[in-house]
Computed example of a mutant assay.
Amino acid sequence: MKKMRYGLFFGDSITYGEYDGVFGGWVDILKRYALQKYNEGSHELILFNLGIGGETTDGLVRRISNEMEARNAAEGNIIFIGYGANDLASKEGVQVVDSERFAVNILKAIQEAKKYSDDIYLVSILPFSNNVDGVVVSSGKLRTNDEVLIYNQILKNIAAENSLHYVDFYSAFLEDKEILLSADGVHPNEKGYGIMAEIVIPIIENYL
């Protein structure tokens, strides 16, 4: 008997796939892959891209309960949570979501997600391009790669302490970030999104 599961991807514009006019971002690549596999005889895995541009973990905490309730597959769910690039940004010297609140928010979201799934993946924050590291950009936001390390460590610790999976996109981008990031220095380009999808394909294959 074929199973039907849902994959829910919570996140910001990087989950949504912004700046990728070719493939539509890493989650869309995975959607097409899962559908192709289903057509070839695999189990059905329906993926929902729940990324919202500009969102922080404050927004995640507000909506995760309703989103999960609306999309709860009887045969199981896989949940990906990818936040931090907006949380760690500073505006006029004030961090949007400081590291302490970030950790609390992630834990709250996990608590909610665990009501619906044991398969929860925390997604690392990507490094920023050298040309925006520590620079105030047109949106008024300032981001640093030092903060990325701090917030990623929080995610790693939470994953380890709660027996969750950690998806390390950061390491895959670090050496080639200037090639894999778009002109804004924050979002991946189509090549970068392709690499993200390649990293996650072996994960979703476990459910196909």
Rank of each mutant, 00 (worst) to 15 (best):
I46E: 09
N152T: 14
D98C: 14
D118Q: 14
I78A: 08
D98N: 15
R5A: 01
I203T: 05
N105S: 12
S139T: 12
G82T: 04
N162H: 10
D146C: 06
R143H: 05
Y19D: 01
I81S: 05
V61H: 01
G192P: 00
E92H: 15
L60H: 06
E190H: 13
G21L: 08
K177Q: 02
V132F: 12
I199T: 11
L47K: 08
D146G: 11
A197E: 01
E69R: 14
I46A: 07
R71E: 02
R143F: 00
E175V: 04
E112T: 07
E18K: 13
Y83H: 09
I81V: 03
R143T: 01
E161I: 02
L47G: 01
N206F: 04
G25T: 10
L60R: 07
I106A: 03
H165A: 15
G11Q: 05
L149I: 07
L164H: 03
L30V: 02
I81Y: 03
E44M: 13
G21E: 06
S171W: 10
H43F: 09
D146E: 13
S65L: 05
R71N: 06
Y207K: 14
S99Q: 10
V22L: 12
L126N: 07
V137W: 01
F10V: 02
I179F: 09
F48V: 13
I79R: 06
V137R: 15
V94N: 13
L122D: 03
N39P: 00
S13C: 02
S139C: 12
E112C: 11
F9Y: 09
L45E: 03
E40Q: 14
Y116F: 09
L181E: 02
N49Y: 07
G53N: 13
S124H: 07
T144C: 05
A85M: 10
G51A: 12
A34L: 12
V135L: 08
R71H: 05
Q36S: 15
L149P: 03
I79D: 01
V136S: 12
L126H: 11
N189I: 01
L142I: 10
V136N: 14
I201V: 13
S182P: 05
M68C: 09
Y6V: 06
N157P: 07
I78F: 11
I195A: 05
D87E: 05
T57C: 00
